[in-house]
Design a protein around this nucleic acid. Structure first.
Lengths: 235, 235
DNA sequence: CCACTATATCCACGGCGTGGATTTAATCAA
DNA sequence: TTGATTAAATCCACGCCGTGGATATAGTGG
């Protein structure tokens, strides 16, 4: 499962100049892959020019030939993930198409859970990652929603999707199994807050079902859009 | 506008032991204030134990007596901001109370724009910052919404508010004045995307009116809640 | 008065991002 | 073919960073 195994590791006293033709070239893609490996292992905070270079068996400064510093590296990772969102063909039914777009985005964003904050919070200037926007606009427009309102609705949908996924990603690798100890502790904390409605709702607040929350949010957002469209051009 | 001006600056060869009674004691609040100063000046990335200590005219390790490392420092800042959310008394009308809660949260989150990501993305285990949750639950419950559904709706509201404010904060200090050059450039980029609906909507996508987007999002979220409640216990 | 604890500084270590110099190989112009 | 240019790599070094550990000073409780 190594990278192309340039040398053993840690890059001890390697060749000095540009690598000969046949030799394995460092590439932007390989760098992004290595970075994702680091992220999966130790989280985003474990990413450093040096740690990524170490995975590749390469000098840190070599990365600069393919990527624009650490920030550019993280941008590249976000773009790579966002660019890989696969949205199924539209059916023309918003009740199907909106959830499908959201699902595609979610799948990609949570593929590498530790990398989710990157995907969800980086604002990239690039063209990559526009596919979901295009798909959402297409779905809304073909449902009869005028252009400007489509943009507004699209923004709301994206914002609440991002908010929902951010929470899901931050909830950690809690798989909902035998986390009951954590739940009980959380509930106790909430009950100690002294806030009446928080106390009343503590059992529900302490619990967290990733899929159920996501489904509920998507369903609500879809209903919102349908209402808006009905009210706008139907009434 | 200095901190209490312990020494001139950079803390050159200061006293060595515990400060005498009358002398200015370092405090958690002073540290949080200094951190916000650093954030306002240079963004979250400019925060370091050393930079904050420099502002206070103090050794970096002194901060550890009041704050649990750098992560604890940032948590303290987030808690401080979240704890200061002031929510006006409820009127009983969701159409007024929900926007009021959102406004209070927004005001506080954008008070220090560079610190917004902290407030919006940190998950804090503490009791602080539960006020908005309490207020939202109270508003929903007193509108007749059952406990569990109130929790679900509250989560949706929080998620979309966070998503919206995150976008607003990331949009940078664009004050909407004479940014037309940037708008035009953004529109050009979008038109080069090759995506038909993006191209069609480019003029709207390129533009960004902070307040208008926020108002629209809050209004939509409020409408969503009203519909849900009507459908649920009214129908 | 003495032990203990709280609060401060100083020192030091290993890791970080990256500017700059150097080395090697590929590529292109003549 | 040959020489200049460019691309891709390593090495070196600087000034930051978080923080572990030692030390010093002052308050505090028996």
């Amino acid at each position: 499962m190594n990278r192309m195994t340039r040398s053993a590791d840690a890059n001890a006293g390697a060749r000095r100049g540009r690598p000969p033709k046949g030799a394995s070239q460092l590439s932007r893609d390989a760098i992004v892959d290595a970075t994702l490996e680091v992220i999966d292992t130790g989280g985003v905070t474990a990413v450093s020019m040096r740690s990524v270079a170490r995975v590749l068996g390469v000098d840190a400064k070599s990365l600069y030939n393919h990527v624009d510093g650490k920030d550019g590296l993280l941008d590249a990772v976000a773009e790579h993930l966002l660019g890989g969102v696969f949205i199924p063909p539209a059916t023309g039914d918003l009740r199907i198409d909106l959830p499908a777009i959201a699902d595609a985005f979610r799948d990609r964003a949570l593929l590498h859970p530790e990398a989710a904050p990157l995907v969800l919070t980086r604002q990239l200037a690039s063209i990559e990652g526009l596919a979901p926007v295009e798909a959402l606009l297409g779905a809304l427009r073909s449902a009869g929603c005028p252009t400007e309102e489509s943009v507004q609705l699209m923004r709301i949908l994206v914002a609440s999707l991002i908010g929902t996924l951010l929470r899901e990603a931050q909830a950690g690798p809690t798989l909902g199994i035998s986390d009951t100890g954590g739940i009980a502790a959380r509930q106790k904390t909430l009950e100690d807050s002294g806030l009446p409605h928080v106390i009343e709702a503590a059992p529900h607040l302490a619990r967290f079902d990733r899929d159920a929350e996501y489904e509920y949010a998507v369903q609500a957002a879809t209903a919102l859009v349908l209402d808006r469209i009905r009210a706008s051009h139907g009434g």
